[in-house]
Amino acid sequence: MANVSVQGVWKTYAGQPVLERLNLEVPSGQFCAILGASGCGKSTFLRLLMSQERPSRGRITLDGAPLPEDPGPDRGIVFQKYSVFPHLTALANVVVGLEFAAAPLTGRLFGRARRRAEMEAAQVLAAVGLDGAHGKYPAELSGGMQQRLAIAQALVRKPRVLLLDEPFGALDPGTRAQMHALITRLWQETGMTVFMVTHDLREGFALSTRVLVFDKVRHDPQAPEAYGATITYDLPLLRKAPPPALAGAVGAQEEQRS
């Protein structure tokens, strides 16, 4: 699907480096967990991959081509918060992605085209376990269901790369375990390349095939901001599939709550 190449990338804000000397080759289909202290630049790295920000130095390529200048449907994103549109129902939140593709002028589909888009969206909602919630607004959904919806929305345009910024950080442990099973299954089914920022070491190791740890290696006691973080550990987990325990739990834990 998509291999991502990061070559000598720096990111500075107002002269102060946040990220420095990033070099990374991620083959297609890998699941990279990104760990690191708060404020060390993990979200910044995702913003670079998303084209929300541009590297101050270096370059990033996607399947050998330079990253597009703007965010686009080739790279989906799930944030911890504000990931779904509050004014649209669950179904409409997913349909809207199809409408953007098919209706450049109005951003809306009508009649048969709309019903076809709704059927497609319904399949994606079913895949994340949200069959019963089509007509609900995000505020009516629990935190876990909102993140399921955010994932469904991110998947509907079939991105080659999925970026997750602490997607499960606000969820309780039980819900989080269900979400782990879900994201693992979807990753396996789609073959996307996944980057997931997480605070949770166990989550990182449990889900990914590769763990990247961001940290500062250079320190200047007189000027703590003088240097940025880089990748200090890059651990391939030599695992193409998730641990069997997790894979077995997929079907069992797909139950809904509200």
Binding site: M50, Q52, P71, G72, P73, G76, I77, V84, F100, R157
Partner: peptide, 10 residues
């Protein structure tokens, strides 16, 4: 995030 999200939906 909402504006970014919309862009990632094309």
């Amino acid at each position: 995030e909402l504006l970014i999200k919309a862009q990632t939906l094309g």
